[in-house]
Amino acid sequence: MVKIRYSRSDGFTEELDVAVGESVRDAAIEAGVTGIEGECGGQMNCATCHVYVDRTWLGKTPEIDEIEDAMLDGTACPREDNSRLSCQLRVQPDWEGFTVHLPESQY
């Protein structure tokens, strides 16, 4: 298990123990973290699981593929250089303390 932090736009932060390989989106849905949706179930069809990766972690995330890149242009809150779809962030063993900032809205 790896500790993942979800920092909401209202300043509230939740910490979850997430299994390696599980997506940051799925873990949030399971634990009832509000602020991440993922209407399509994690298939890169909806762009409602948008997160901003904490800048200290930027070099440690997998590359954005073409589909994710395209879908990130469809997020409700503005896309930044640290924007990701959390369904594509599969937790890695060395992600202890990995932090994502949740956008104000997914709609």
Binding site: A31, G32, C40, G41
Partner: peptide, 24 residues
């Protein structure tokens, strides 16, 4: 939606397609 797709194709379990966790 997975019912006609990955649920059959990958043999997913009902827990894998929960809409929300119980805590929600």
């Amino acid at each position: 939606p997975p019912l006609s797709k990955t649920f059959l194709a990958k043999g997913e379990a009902p827990e894998d397609i929960a809409l929300r966790g119980e805590v929600f």
